[in-house]
Computed example of a mutant assay.
Amino acid sequence: MRPRQFDLIAFDWDGTLFDSTALITRCIQSAVADVGGTVPSNRDASYVIGMGLMQALAHAAPDVPPEKYPLLGERYRFHYIKCQRDITLFEGVLPLLARLKERHHLLTVATGKSRVGLNEALRSVELVGMFDGSRTADETAGKPSPLMLNELMSEFGVAPERTLMIGDTTHDLQMALNAGCASVGVSYGAHEPDAFHVLEPRHVAHSVQELSDWLATHA
């Protein structure tokens, strides 16, 4: 068997493993409308995916005053919870994760979701126990701070050069760069891949199957 290049693989969740980009975009827009803000475009609403929730909402709705942020967050959660069971993993994710497990990679999640949100998502797709560790934006610094990756590397005793971050946004790839880790971008999520190359990903995958094929020969 080919030696592993990476011991720890960290996945972003939304837009990388979970097909939720369109729903999150709509929920951000609906929440902003509910509190009387200027509704962001699809591009602007999807840009903030991957950040911590309040950081994302504040960025997407710059004309909403800070005193309305709690209501803004509440309305976002209302819209998301109403529809969250309509979304699921991208096709091919389960066999991809199973193959990486067979090669004894440490699998982790580094996400802008809350801990409650990630746990609910893992239960909904029956992936509780699949990942060796995870970090969420409400329990550490949000992306693109390297703290999520630094904490995961510290937890498992893995060096940056043995760690790979996989994500669909520039926030994910910038976090990896800040942490001194390699990264792979996926183009089927929230951000246009044209912005990825300056952040030096090892590869940009245009489908889960392409991601799986690259990992099979390079991870």
Rank of each mutant, 00 (worst) to 15 (best):
L106C: 11
G133E: 08
L199M: 02
L107H: 07
A137F: 06
A110K: 05
E126Q: 14
E91I: 04
G157R: 07
L53P: 01
P66I: 07
A121K: 03
I49C: 06
A141M: 08
I49T: 06
V186K: 09
F90G: 04
M148I: 00
G112S: 13
L72N: 08
R103I: 03
E74N: 02
D138W: 13
K101Y: 00
S183P: 09
M54Q: 11
K82T: 10
M1F: 07
V204Y: 10
H105M: 11
I28K: 05
A45L: 12
A22K: 05
H104M: 06
L71T: 04
V93Q: 06
P40A: 13
E139G: 05
S154Y: 02
S212Y: 04
S41N: 14
L97R: 07
G189M: 10
E161Y: 08
S124L: 13
L106Q: 15
L215V: 07
Q209S: 15
G37W: 14
H218V: 09
S124V: 00
D168W: 12
L107E: 05
S20Y: 00
S154A: 14
A159E: 12
A182Q: 13
S134K: 03
K82W: 03
E200I: 00
P193V: 06
D132K: 04
R77P: 00
E126M: 09
G73V: 01
G133K: 01
P62L: 10
A141D: 10
N119I: 01
A205N: 08
E210L: 15
N42Y: 14
A56I: 02
A219H: 06
G133M: 11
S154N: 13
H203E: 13
S187V: 03
E120F: 01
A45S: 10
I81K: 02
V125A: 05
V116Q: 14
D172E: 08
Y69W: 15
G180R: 02
I24F: 01
E192R: 08
E200F: 07
S124T: 03
F11D: 01
M153P: 05
F90M: 11
L177E: 09
F11P: 08
G52T: 11
D7K: 08
L53E: 12
V116W: 06
L106T: 14
K113C: 10
F78D: 02
Q5N: 14
G157S: 12
T108K: 03
L107D: 01
L89V: 08
T140K: 01
R135T: 11
P160N: 13
L199W: 00
G180P: 14
